[in-house]
Design a binder for these strands. Structure first.
Length: 262
DNA sequence: ATGACGGAAGTTTTCCGA
């Protein structure tokens, strides 16, 4: 079974790339962030024609998330229950593996707030959002041990996840407060699947559009897949797929792919 | 010092992302 996450930075622009990627990478489930589409404009028919069921939660201009799955999603949740939020950032549901009788996986796809700058109101919102997420994920994990939390976390967990950790020290995505929140999620009984394996040094999931950052491989690892301890023995691989970043008009993020044995 | 690049809104310029 394969699961993936991808911040597409506008699904209206990136839909052809998503469909091409799925044709080459027929994962069982894919969560998308930054769809930037209201639900009435969501390209449901095109995605269903590609063989995927889809759940989505969007808004105008910003944010927006979706969950594509080979088998229909069940018990879908939009945003963090009990956390009043105008911003569409979370979609969760239970999905099965196609053609297997294996137990369902609880998938949570999330677009974590950016935070803009550590002294900003947006950072305060990010902190509140992270508090609410943690409490909710703790409850979800208790109810569904076979849980995967994945998406654009907008947090670089460690200095090795940053191309220039000296320049980024204390900057947004790298503050001690954000990193403490990441560790608190790990403390719930989740594991960073990417770090279960030896990985190439300077592995990033995002590169700035500016300054030839991709060509110079100057990026951050801010897109993550965390798996519940119950699933850890099933984890076979976790990789960042840089290929779509080489497309014309790419997203600034690359997909991250998790392989589980069935 | 502070922009760059890219997307969206919407109308010529701004906000936002990371």
């Amino acid at each position: 079974m394969k699961l993936a996450t991808w911040n597409v930075n506008s699904l209206a622009v990136r839909l052809p790339q998503v469909l091409d990627w799925l044709a080459a990478n027929p994962v069982d489930a894919l969560v998308l962030q930054e769809t930037k589409l209201t639900d009435d404009k969501f390209p449901r028919a095109e995605i269903e024609a590609a063989g995927y069921a889809v759940q989505f939660h969007g808004q105008k201009t910003y944010n927006g998330v979706a969950l594509l799955s080979r088998t229909p999603a069940q018990d879908t949740v939009r945003n963090i229950p009990g956390f009043d939020d105008e911003q569409a950032r979370v979609i969760g549901a239970s999905v099965g593996a196609e053609g297997t009788a294996g137990a369902a996986i609880r998938v949570i796809g999330a677009y974590f707030p950016n935070g803009q700058a550590p002294d900003s109101d947006k950072f305060q919102y990010k902190m509140r959002w992270l508090e609410a997420l943690r409490a909710w994920v703790a409850a979800e994990l208790a109810a569904h041990p076979r849980l995967v939390l994945m998406g654009d976390f907008n947090i670089a967990p460690e200095d090795r996840d940053v191309y220039d950790p000296v320049a980024w020290a204390g900057q947004i995505h790298c503050t001690p407060e954000e990193r403490a929140h990441f560790q608190a999620l790990i403390g719930l009984g989740l594991v960073d699947a990417f770090r279960l394996f030896e990985q190439p040094p300077k592995s990033w999931s995002w590169w700035d559009y500016r300054n030839l950052a991709f060509r110079k491989n100057q990026g951050l690892r801010i897109d993550h897949i965390l798996v519940g301890a119950a699933l850890r023995p099933a984890v076979q691989a976790c990789v960042i797929d840089k290929l779509p970043r080489k497309n014309e008009r790419p997203s600034d993020h690359a997909p991250v792919v998790l392989t589980l044995d069935d």
